[in-house]
Design a protein around this nucleic acid. Structure first.
Length: 563
RNA sequence: UGGGGCGUCGUCAAGCGGUAAGACACGGGAUUUUGGUUCCCGCAUUCGGGGGUUCGAAUCCUCCCGCCCCAGCCA
């Protein structure tokens, strides 16, 4: 950690520092344990940064372990996307790639051990009966009639479960703990169930699969994890996590520590709901740039560094809250401002003609690539008599605070000349402005007036005959409400979908230097925002995604005067 | 009305008995060939509420209030 980095500490770091100070541990060995049943999202990024971050900071390592104990929900596609996403975020698990399914044999032995100790039993109650026997939040449960089955019988039954002699749902293995515990997790939890499903890694070797609670802590112990970091909802599971480790002969006893999961305004971070958006084709896929998935924000153009900074800034605590989306966007802009090359692109073109500029002439003007990064140099951009500017940069009857182009007004074309608007041509039928006639001042080449006169606005532009055509996809919040789950009676979160979250512009005009852009490039389109070259982009038809707009003071002024 | 957590600025979040950090947002101003960036300035006499302990409390005690999680053979 950089001494100058003022990122405040947090309670988990404090715990680890103390464990090292007291000699309990020499290093922090952590793990990121996703279930491969969906794509990772920004909430997982918090966990990833925390786990890998603590390991890095405290001389240890972080394992990537797939918690794959439910073959009916898990797929290889998810395994692959998760690995790609963790790498993209900038983390490396090295040799330490594991799967809970690697431990099935050991887990099975441990289950037998529990049976032999008289601490687990096979139950043939139906799922419905198990539920009834469990009791309620306020009423204790009742012991299953099978609870006192002899060890030998349990061993035999469990072996037959494994051998596939029973149907799904007919038998389970349960830990014998306490049916009267106020913690429901301790009321003889199921630790193995029969699932006649093929597993994405073990195939048909098993027809019984261990449950999360049984698997997780034991896997941690097997890997020598020191600090097992998870989200708040597992707090109630900690006594059970500890119980298995206490009852079995394990290599070590990791400490589970819970922290608050991430929530963000205008965003949904439930795997189930995200899956629904994909299945209903309400988005183009898991990597739709509007999705809060890692693959979505990658395609949107958010840099991994910005995500890491964001996670640092939100902190780690036990208090559950909702982070302002604007903080994420701030981190994205902050990073992009430093690294993105500036280019000129007109996404909503209107033609201007410089009437006193020679018909056939064109010239190359020098433009700065990134004022925040002088070594990035300059490039030449062609200028000619006919240009395109942004439709929004001209108003025939401008309000007081509008200081862009208007009849009779002089403005600067960035890196080019001062121009003055003389005449507006409109379509006779629609009234739409088709052309704007201007004159330029040759003495202002480069954008400075030798006589020191000022203009109030600088516009971006492209030369009509040199410009390339591109598709630009403008993205906005997927949901129009801060809390997408805040809905009227009888409606669900889908009713809060923002109908204008995607706008596709196919006739955008971009400067010729962009002809060589490749998917993954990041740019700032001057005065518009940050853009990312989409994987759909080709040399013939470039496609850009708007990552974020620039901060727009003018839009704010407009909004204020409206209200 | 069982158990487990959590309540400090609009939002995150420090604070660990010595008199409320920081960031985002918001509002003002300066500089600017991006109404961008950068830079200044403002923004909790008060820590969910009431009692108490103490020279001194956001921090300790106590009662109360509010919010979240748990009754999958999901993770």
């Amino acid at each position: 950690m950089n001494e100058n980095d003022k990122t405040p500490s947090h309670f988990i770091r404090d715990i680890i520092i103390n464990d090292i100070k007291t000699g309990k541990h020499a290093a922090a060995i952590t793990r990121f344990p996703p279930e491969p049943n969906g794509y990772l999202h920004i909430g997982h990024a918090k966990s990833i940064c925390l786990n890998f971050g603590m390991a890095q900071e405290f001389y240890g390592r972080c394992h990537l372990r797939f918690d794959d104990t439910n073959p009916t929900k898990e797929e290889m596609e998810y395994v692959e996307s998760i690995m790609q996403d963790v790498k993209w975020l900038g983390f490396d698990w090295g040799e330490h790639l594991y799967y809970a399914s690697d431990y099935y044999d050991q887990l099975y032995e441990w289950a037998i051990d529990l049976i032999k100790q008289g601490k687990a039993y096979v139950d043939d109650l139906s799922a419905e009966q198990v539920r009834q026997y469990r009791g309620t939040l306020t009423k204790p449960g009742k012991n299953s009639p099978n609870r006192e089955r002899p060890v030998e019988e349990n061993l035999d039954l469990f072996e037959r479960m494994r051998a596939g002699k029973f149907d799904e749902g007919t038998h389970v293995l349960r830990a014998k703990i306490d049916m009267a515990s106020p913690n429901l997790n301790m009321r003889d939890p199921v630790i193995y169930r029969i699932m006649k499903a093929s597993h994405h890694r073990t195939g048909d070797k098993w027809c019984i699969y261990p449950m999360y609670d049984f698997t997780h802590g034991l896997s941690d112990a097997l890997e020598g994890i020191t600090h097992s970091l998870c989200t708040l909802e597992f707090e109630d599971h900690r006594p059970l996590y500890d119980w298995f480790l206490d009852e079995l002969d394990v290599p070590c006893h990791p400490r589970q520590i819970e922290f608050a999961p991430l929530n963000m305004t205008y965003t949904i971070l439930s795997k189930r709901k995200l899956l629904l958006l994909v299945k209903k084709n309400l988005v183009s896929g898991w990597d739709d740039p509007r999705m809060p998935t890692i693959s979505g924000i990658r395609r949107r153009g958010y840099p991994p560094e910005a995500i890491r900074t964001f996670v640092d800034r939100i902190g780690v605590a036990k208090r559950e809250g909702t982070v302002d989306f604007s903080l994420l966007e701030y981190c994205v802009r902050e990073n992009l401002n430093k690294i993105a090359s500036r280019v000129m692109a007109v996404i909503n073109p209107v033609k201007i003609i410089i009437t006193n500029y020679p018909e056939e002439k064109s010239e190359e003007l020098e433009c700065v690539n990134n004022p925040e990064d002088p070594p990035a140099g300059t490039r030449m951009v062609p200028f000619s008599r006919e240009l395109f500017i942004e439709r929004d940069d001209f108003m025939e009857n401008p309000p007081k605070k509008f200081y862009r182009l208007a009849p009779g007004r002089e403005v600067r074309l960035r890196y080019a000349y001062f121009i003055t608007c003389n005449e507006v041509i409109k379509d006779k039928n629609t009234g739409e402005i088709t052309e704007i006639f201007c004159t330029y001042d040759p003495a202002t080449k480069g954008g400075d007036a030798p006589d020191g006169r000022k203009v109030k606005a600088t516009l971006h532009w492209v030369s009509a005959k040199h410009a390339l055509t591109a598709e630009v996809r403008l993205y906005d919040q997927l949901f129009s409400k801060e809390d997408p789950n805040d809905v009227e009676e009888g409606k669900d979160f889908l009713s809060n979908l923002n109908p204008n979250s995607l706008q596709i512009l196919k006739e955008c005009r971009i400067e010729p230097s962009l002809s060589t852009t490749k998917p993954g490039d990041r740019f700032q389109f001057e005065r518009l925002g940050y853009f990312y070259t989409d994987p759909d982009s080709t040399a013939e038809k470039p496609v850009f995604n708007r990552t974020a707009t620039l901060r727009d003071t003018w839009a704010k002024i407009q909004k204020k005067t409206e209200s």
